[in-house]
Design a protein around this nucleic acid. Sequence first.
DNA 1: GTGAAAGCGCTAACAG
DNA 2: CTGTTAGCGCTTTCAC
Lengths: 352, 352
Amino acid sequence: MASIRDVAALAKVSTATASRALSGRGPVSPATRERVLRASAELGFVPSANAAGLASGRSRNIGVIVPGVDRWFFAKVVRGISEELLDQGYDLSLYTTGGSHDHQEKVLQDYLLRQRLDAVVPVALELTTRERERLVAIGRPIVGVGGAMPGTLTVGIDQEAAGALATGHLTGLGHRHIAHLTAGKDPHRDFGLTGTRQGGFERAMAQAGLVVRPEWVITSDFTLNDAYARAKALLAAPERPTAVFAASDEMAVGTILAARDLGLRVPDDLSVVGIDGHELGDVVGLTTVAQFPERQGARAAARLLQQLAHDGAPDEPQHETVATDFVVRSSTAVPPSPGSRSRRSAASPSPG
Amino acid sequence: MASIRDVAALAKVSTATASRALSGRGPVSPATRERVLRASAELGFVPSANAAGLASGRSRNIGVIVPGVDRWFFAKVVRGISEELLDQGYDLSLYTTGGSHDHQEKVLQDYLLRQRLDAVVPVALELTTRERERLVAIGRPIVGVGGAMPGTLTVGIDQEAAGALATGHLTGLGHRHIAHLTAGKDPHRDFGLTGTRQGGFERAMAQAGLVVRPEWVITSDFTLNDAYARAKALLAAPERPTAVFAASDEMAVGTILAARDLGLRVPDDLSVVGIDGHELGDVVGLTTVAQFPERQGARAAARLLQQLAHDGAPDEPQHETVATDFVVRSSTAVPPSPGSRSRRSAASPSPG
DNA sequence: GTGAAAGCGCTAACAG
DNA sequence: CTGTTAGCGCTTTCAC
């Protein structure tokens, strides 16, 4: 394991000059720089991260805090961040807080304080005020992904607009009986964004002059399985909606599968729209608001690196909204005419 | 940011003693230890990872190399590793190699050499001999997850047995016309394990006295979407199998959805079995060999930590096989009797 | 533009 | 059991 002293010796310069040449910080003549780089390459020199970090205070390492990596959105965001960082020579430290109750505590009051991180990307993290203060207290740049975090720069889609867009698509098709599958707030893995998708739903409903039926706003948990069960109950009831807006594609697909299992045709008997752009939506022809989480992650990482390059001058706190793409496929259509409704024999689904 | 000198001063001991008390390495009297811990807590002391790492050579940091984190198996493995490490106070550095062609190169010849890692967990990584040598050359313990890596300790299921188990289930039900959806080898994201699942398929077929039809061994890519398309082609052909063994649950679900879209009933017209234990299998009643990747990840991490605790004495290279669970649900049944075959009007599906 | 020297904050001999 | 003393390998003033 060659050290910088070996490199310096081979290039016949001091370690100081070698360091300057290798890092690009500080003046070095082109000729010496060339000699040093050659020596470094010849020896296969790789600087010790610990030594460099200790001496300089910079670690070339970004911390990513995420509720879990085995959920679609988080996985995609982490992928986006990881690839951006890998390109730029930065390490990525991953902290998952969703697993056990005290992991989040531990991460915030121990892991993040080890001075190993140049910056932090909290993903869809719901923090108490105290916790947010702790995060800020590490004195490093922060860029969040997902929900907006007061006081810090964040990257994400406009949740409310996405919800309104999806819902407006349904009302525009003429649907008047629309249910909404939202996701409950789980203290362990809060996404900090559901509320506003629901807000968009409510706004679009109001704008179409429709009333939101409380019993048709159903809390699920972002998973396909739970949504399947809830949609089955919803759609098996005597009165059922002609359309469902699910706050995630996985829940939307669960709804489609539930409808199919009840003998309902999509979109003939039921229209379904989701949010995400999940690969799963493809085979069932799901209409959705695609949100490209990789890009969000990559964007957050890029902003952070940019800040670090400008010597840590933090951008002013704000939410950077990234664009979504409305993908119309075959799960949405005009509502069935009252005469042609469904193969089920239940009472007329036309509500009050 | 309190340093160990502050702690030592407050506890009225030397920094050496403070270090010993805090790390548990070296002798300290109970009384002084208590004083040091109290002082540390009072000051909110968190040791600098860089300084500790530089001085000791240990970084309390494990590197995880994974093709990507946005695939079910990898995400679950990473989750398992992450939680185990978080519990033990270890950091996790994540490297994704699947994104761009040279990321794997970069990780192997730069990132891993920064002396920031105490150990490495390569997940389902397919390496050339040279690359494997590089990995070993970092001189740190290695425990792989997924496919077996010659020369290193690995944790994973018995792929061949899993394939044979799934296939044997089908032959046991009386199926004679069985297709297999396998996953091709992609140089960027190789899983290093598909071959053996297919090997299990072939063995079970042979044991049942059945011939493997080459045109019924179909290469897909582990994704639901691709499997859906290939299954549709397979099942729309004049002669079709009565059962499909898919090498992953996502591919199995794709097959089920394709069958449904063709008007085939599962399991009446077609039995489908997968491998994984993917959540998605639940709502479609998929019979599968569950493999619990979180446990595999956690196990690998635990073994690594154990090695590090024993001062790096590496366990002898071998493959540790973890148990699978065969979950029978509703996607498999006895094959249809020739008379009752399907609603499709095509030629008799009974082969040869 | 370059080198000498002083640390970064902690750990690990080595004495005592 | 505890303190003193060197570093770990690099970066960074500060002179020149």
